[in-house]
């Protein structure tokens, strides 16, 4: 997984010896903020270049939010926009040799899951009131409340875990696969075996690695999309009123 090894300290200095995953998540956040600052400085009424891409992305988030949450959707733009970007760039970061996806660490994905968990209930309580919000955990039918309430509570508690493990598992699998292919390439190069077999195995690893990287890029996007869409669905379920349903 940690492919670059000795070069890493030189290329990505970490003077305060912050844990790698935290350091990587800071890099991701810094990249996002710097990008937004650059776009902010060149913000024009008639969009061009990076502003076009940013507008396309943010409008997509706004539209999806509106689709799930109605007119309240755009209020959650900062949450969902940052969530998607953070997860997507974190996922992609692992494709660069020497870097590691923060999302390949369960603590990061669980942190993100918990943000969604608390946001969901915070906005739900804010929209419907404490009792109004928790009422829907008990029914209908309300005579089944003793059974439904614990089931719903367990379901709610499982959500951040399912979000976290899905993302973590996919990204970790991608990183492990890339790591294995890189290791195999080196291993085959120094293994004592017939020349032709050695070259074939090396070639196999060499061809497979870029293909797995492309596939990894796709996985990065899909996982970010799934994570954000599920977060939207959870928040929408909490804040939407019966009329909006």
């Amino acid at each position: 997984m940690n492919e670059a090894g000795p070069l890493k300290e030189f290329l990505i200095p970490n003077p305060f010896h912050v844990p790698e995953v935290v350091y990587m998540s800071w890099i991701v956040m810094a990249l996002i903020i710097v990008f937004f600052i650059i776009v902010r400085l060149t913000l024009k009424t008639l969009p061009r270049g990076a502003q076009n891409v940013t507008e396309f992305f943010l409008e997509w988030i706004i539209k999806r939010s509106e689709e799930y949450m109605g007119k309240n959707g755009p209020r959650f733009l900062p949450l969902f926009a940052l969530l998607f970007l953070f997860v997507f760039i974190s996922n992609l970061l692992g494709l660069i040799p020497g870097f590691k996806s923060p999302t390949s660490n369960i603590n990061v994905t669980l942190g993100l899951g918990l943000i969604i968990f608390f946001s969901t209930h915070y906005f739900g309580i804010k929209a419907k009131g404490f009792f109004g919000y928790f009422k829907h955990f008990a029914g209908p039918p309300y005579w089944l409340a003793p059974l439904l309430f614990p089931i719903h509570i367990i379901g709610e508690l499982i959500r951040p875990l399912s979000l976290a493990f899905r993302l973590f598992g996919n990204i970790l699998a991608k990183e492990i696969l890339l790591g294995i292919l890189a290791t195999l390439l080196v291993t085959f190069a120094f293994t004592d075996m017939p020349w032709i077999v050695q070259k074939m195995l090396e070639a196999g690893s060499l061809i497979l690695r870029p293909l797995i990287m492309v596939l990894g890029g796709l996985v990065c996007f899909i996982q970010a999309l799934v994570f954000t869409m599920l977060a939207m669905v959870y928040v929408a379920g909490a804040v939407s009123t019966s009329e909006e349903h």
Binding site: P19, V21, V22, S25, W26, M29, I32, I33, F36, I37, V39, R40, L58, L77, P78, L79, A81, L82, L83, F86, P102, N105, N107, V108, L110, G111, L112, L114, I115
Partner: peptide, 21 residues
């Protein structure tokens, strides 16, 4: 790490909201 991730995300969200969005 979990706590730092949450804090990083929340700070980032506030910054992005104020700086850009």
């Amino acid at each position: 790490i979990l706590l730092v991730t949450i804090i990083t995300f929340l700070i980032g969200m506030v910054l992005i909201w104020n700086v850009f969005l």
